[in-house]
Design a protein around this nucleic acid. Structure first.
Lengths: 205, 205
DNA sequence: GTGCTATTTGCGGAAATCCACAATAGCCAG
DNA sequence: CTGGCTATTGTGGATTTCCGCAAATAGCAC
């Protein structure tokens, strides 16, 4: 969809311009916002790249915006910018999943490096999310009954046992079984268990 | 093995005593060290609990000790203590896997909470490591050939195909297969794939 | 050499899976 | 009401898995 872009949110136009100029000089696309509210109006799950976010702003603070974005499931990596060396805040932000926390004045090269790292991280995450989504779409194709049967298959139960537990004929289980394999695009219960295995560990940083 | 203990490393005896007294008053076991070197001599993989570590010390710094511990695969959660609000250092430490980063002067209750959280984290990690170790011990029981066969089973291949690829009789594959299930204490290829699935995601914080 | 383990193979049968062909029944949309 | 989807079941056969019984070869340790 979109190409990786750095979203810059800062109330100080001088900072916004400096950042945008810096990134532009390194061939990194960016877009600026003068308040958390303005960006929040624009935010969409399709965004990719990263977010350069000033902590202290009139109105909604960067930290507040960060919380809102998390609530909105926006997974954009966030790099905080702050002029006030606040260790507890930095620690909390990172523990809450912020990608980085930089003090102003910042070093140009260091900042660009961190931005590039964040973009790279987001690119990888998007790819992972993509295959995860594909998997979930396949899962969604399964009918209710098929999902029930699948659970029992993954529990390692024999068709005979599954038939018993669901009070249906073994033949019916066999039919469901083959439909499940077909829809999930696997050829055995082992493969099924493996492709579904990655669903458990959806972590970030 | 050991009961959870807080290892306190600080060159200032007043700080050491204050921390130990504080923890003792909350019924948390602790032990103190006056230098990174002293602790490093004592460290063992059996330790559990957490590490309260002063950043700035004569000789080896807390950060240096932290690096050494990581190299030694010591998984003890580390809470840094520092008197100098250094945001970049805190950020780097957390990104490197430190559990927390606290500024002096610290709030007693907040510090104890973080210590308890770290101990809790370590306890969970130990449990996870334990079952992981058990799994690896079982894996180690498999002979070379059995491991080869297991790989192919996990690739979803039929016994017939496995026999072809290894240039052995199908019956041999069947024997290996049953030995594998027996040693790994599972009753089907699906279960096998599931118990081995957790091996992929050995992460921390 | 003897004993132990790993690796290999064959035979034969019980049990389970996979599948094509065929059919019944309920529900919902056009 | 007719066509499509879902769920269900049956028959019968090909293929595969699982397993006990039996046994041969090779390497390694005591």
């Amino acid at each position: 969809m979109n190409s990786p872009t750095v979203q810059i949110v800062d109330d100080d136009s001088a900072v916004r311009d400096a950042l945008q100029w810096l990134l532009q000089s390194r061939r990194v696309a960016s877009r600026t916002w003068e308040s958390a509210e303005a960006f929040l109006d624009f935010v969409s799950p399709k965004l990719c790249g990263c977010l350069l976010l000033d902590v202290r702003m009139p109105g909604m603070s960067g930290i507040e915006l960060f919380d809102r974005l998390r609530a909105l499931k926006c997974r954009l990596p966030v790099i905080f910018l702050t002029g006030h060396g606040d260790v507890p805040m930095a620690v909390q932000a990172l523990k809450d999943g912020a990608f980085d926390f930089i003090e102003k004045p910042y070093d140009d090269n260091a900042l660009v490096d961190k931005v590039l790292a964040a973009i790279d991280h987001d690119t990888r995450r998007s790819a992972k999310d993509g295959s995860l989504l594909l998997l979930q779409q396949r899962l969604a194709q399964l009918t209710q009954r098929e999902q029930e049967v699948m659970q029992l298959i993954l529990a390692g139960k024999l068709n005979k046992v599954i038939a018993d537990e669901l009070n249906i004929a073994m033949r019916t289980v066999e039919v469901h079984r083959s439909h499940i394999f077909e829809k999930m695009q696997v050829r055995s219960a082992v493969e099924l268990s493996q492709v579904l295995g990655v669903l458990g560990d959806t972590q970030d940083y």
